[in-house]
Amino acid sequence: MGAVVALGLLSACGDDKPGSVAKEPDGTVAGADQLQACPSVQSRQPAPKGLPEISLPCLGKGPDTRLSDLRGPLVINVWAQWCGPCREEAPYLAALQRKAGDKLELIGIDYIDTRPDLAVKFALDHDWDYPHLVDTDKLTQQSLRIAGPPVTAFIDRQGVLVYVHQGALRSQQQLEQLVEDKLGVSL
């Protein structure tokens, strides 16, 4: 009887395995064109105590982005669609983007996620209207001190990584206070 139940559960999982990704005819992930495009960023000297000289591909459309070229004020949120705490803090990030206007930039990094189609859906479902990069190989793990998602990093105007918050953000107020305290941006 247990084997029959197990087989039934396995068949109910359907095609939800790492290799089954819905793609458009041009090879891009379905829905990725609805995400905010990754911007072209001017090449710069890496900032002391800044982001690493690694390039990550865009989850949506747009060029790869070399992290060391980024300047702030900038909030980088490391997330994954399979991450429960990422779902809990998602509304705070969407609200921050709406509230910040041109005072602050946001970039997401989809971290070690084997399902880019579900990552695109996650970003769209949470109204994340900012660019997202992809780190499937843990290239940012050491520089952003990632034990696992979520992680939120704060980068100042000179490109210096001034603070890394480990774990989920607990409230909108906490996120906005971190932006003010770490980046000097009042919303």
Rank of each mutant, 00 (worst) to 15 (best):
I76G: 01
A95M: 10
D135T: 06
L59T: 02
W128A: 07
C86S: 11
L74M: 11
A90F: 08
P63C: 01
P18Y: 06
G31F: 01
G60T: 04
Q97N: 14
R98H: 15
H165K: 14
L187C: 05
A30N: 10
T65L: 04
Y130T: 09
K23R: 14
R71N: 06
L74D: 12
N77A: 10
P85N: 07
A119T: 01
L93W: 07
L59P: 02
L96I: 05
A100G: 15
Q97G: 06
D102S: 13
R157T: 15
V185K: 02
A3N: 11
Q174M: 15
P25V: 01
D69I: 03
V21D: 00
Y111E: 00
E89Y: 04
G62F: 02
D129A: 10
A147H: 12
K17A: 09
A30S: 12
G167V: 07
E88A: 15
V5I: 13
I76V: 10
N77G: 06
V162T: 14
G19E: 03
A3L: 08
P48A: 15
L178H: 08
D181W: 02
E88R: 15
L10E: 04
S55G: 11
L169N: 03
A153P: 06
I109T: 03
P18L: 05
A47Q: 08
R71Q: 10
I109P: 00
P91L: 10
V160C: 01
C38Q: 04
R87H: 15
C13K: 13
Q42I: 06
L67Y: 07
T28F: 01
G60I: 04
V151N: 01
Q45P: 04
V21K: 00
D113L: 00
V162C: 03
L175C: 13
A90L: 10
D102T: 07
V120P: 00
A6I: 07
S40E: 15
P131E: 14
Q42H: 06
S143H: 11
L118G: 04
A6K: 06
K17N: 12
V29K: 00
P25M: 02
T28M: 02
L187S: 12
L96A: 13
A94L: 06
K99L: 11
I112L: 09
T140K: 01
T152R: 02
D26C: 03
R115H: 14
Y130I: 08
R157I: 08
